[in-house]
Amino acid sequence: MNRRPPEPVQVVKQRRDAALTALAGRVPYIRFLNISFDRRGDELTGVLNYDDKLIGNPELPALHGGVTAAFLEVTAIITLSWGLLWEDVESGVLTLDALEAGELPRLPKTIDFTVDYLRSGLPRDAYARAHVTRSGRRYASVRAEAWQDNHDRPIAQAHAHFLMPRKEG
């Protein structure tokens, strides 16, 4: 009995990155805010790439609170979806061709979203990570936090509930 040799690293990376690009890349609002995702293994960090149009208080200046909330919500949704997708990407159930053709599960729907503002957002890039506290068959509970220069000085935190997409078949 021969064990299957592990896949070459570039094949694994290519499939994972294609899944992430397919997931986040097809949402117009993520492009509107110019949010990208850094991936290390299965861990995602959202990056809000600074642009002058994200400002909400031109006098300070500071990021719009709504943008910070939206950034946290986007990071929460993509992290939650990524968790659902991960196993199928790893097992090869979702092929590269299928991903590129946009064959992805539906996105979770936000039920409620609560954001606490801790510091004003400076006019520069921001980062966010979401932690899925529970991902059930119908509902999910997610925490998220955003920071800029220092991870231990968060600018906002959020918690939210989501309605999960129905599994087909």
């Binding site: 949402v27 117009p28 939206a70 950034f71 979203f113």
Partner: peptide
């Protein structure tokens, strides 16, 4: 440009957050 669900064309909750906050 504000669509959050490309399958339905529904506006992203984040844009609604900004509207509500403003």
């Amino acid at each position: 440009a504000l669509v959050g669900d490309p399958d339905t064309g529904v506006i992203h909750g984040g844009a609604v957050s900004t509207l509500m906050d403003t």
